[in-house]
């Protein structure tokens, strides 16, 4: 198993297992898990998330997570 840190933003905050918040939380996953696996584990329906950043860089859904990494997941957002 690996432990990663996850954070969910904007409308995705409701999927935070500790209650609606953008505070980071720890998640345990089997080794070799992808971001997609993480979304599934957090019950985030496909299509609700738009982008994921791992340690400050955007990664694809099939990115394989490593021990200790931080994953931030965002729905579609904009501003300016």
């Amino acid at each position: 198993m690996i432990t990663i840190e996850a954070a969910l933003f904007a409308t995705l905050r409701t999927y935070n297992p500790n209650g609606e918040s953008s505070e980071p939380f720890r998640v345990q996953l089997p080794e070799g898990s992808t971001i997609e696996n993480l979304l599934k584990k957090l019950n985030i329906p496909p299509g609700e998330s738009k982008q994921a950043f791992v340690n400050n860089r955007r990664q694809e859904w099939d990115y394989i997570l490593q021990e200790g990494e931080r994953v931030a997941i965002f729905p579609p957002i904009a501003g300016g």
Binding site: A10, N56, A72, F74, P76, I77, A78
Partner: peptide
């Protein structure tokens, strides 16, 4: 469009929704 529709990102959170994502990408 997801970003501009009623209840979409801009409408629900305003432009400061960008703070966290810009922080996340450094």
């Amino acid at each position: 469009h997801d970003l501009t529709k009623p209840g979409g990102a801009l409408n629900s959170f305003g432009t400061a929704i960008l703070i966290n994502v810009l922080n996340e990408v450094g």
